[in-house]
Amino acid sequence: MPNQNLENLIECVVQLDLRSAKSLVEKLLDEGVDPYTIITEGLSKGMERVGIRYEKGEYFLSELLAATAVMKGAMKILEPHIKIEQKKKGTIVIGTVRGDLHDVGKNIFMGLAQAAGFNVIDLGVDVPTERFVEAVRQYRPDILGMSALITTTIDEMEIVIKALESSGLRNSVKVILGGAPVTGEFGKSIGADAAVNDAMTGLRICSRWIDESKTK
């Protein structure tokens, strides 16, 4: 029989209600429910439903961010009860390309990816080509994400991809581009593996890549 409080917790995440979510997490812990069950059967399912609403156009980035805040707020209560650190889903290195100081989209993606279990290494904004290459060499990530908002800075993405190729690192990492000006056609033309305009689609693609790599 499903635990009603877990069902309610899912709904709290969907309704972006942090106060009730925190209270339910405490109740569930008092009932002796395993913290991992609270995360996987409560909070994560809530985030999945938020994602579905986003894809249907019922929710926007503002709601995705609020849902992530609810999840993080609830996780703070759970953290002391989690004894062994969860294995991370995969590693993503991310940054906004040289010449571009915008970080809203990047940070939204980062929050979602962390909530989904990725280890995210943020290089910040205005990241020089060499720094991207160096980070791929140093961290050996599964995925490199590059973000740009200004139409005149997306050319930098091609420069980074070429630098990865000449450093012999291109085949070791999937490359995803994010930002309003990028298109699938543009991504393909410069040798990226994917190009997206929104964080949720980006997260779905990254998760799929990790799942595929595990089945190989």
């Binding site: 942090l18 980035l61 503002s62 709601e63 961010l65 609020a66 805040a69 809203v104 940070n107």
Partner: peptide
């Protein structure tokens, strides 16, 4: 930050 305002709109 506008992103914090978005969250605060709900919280």
């Amino acid at each position: 930050p506008p992103t914090k305002m978005m969250v605060d709109y709900y919280l």
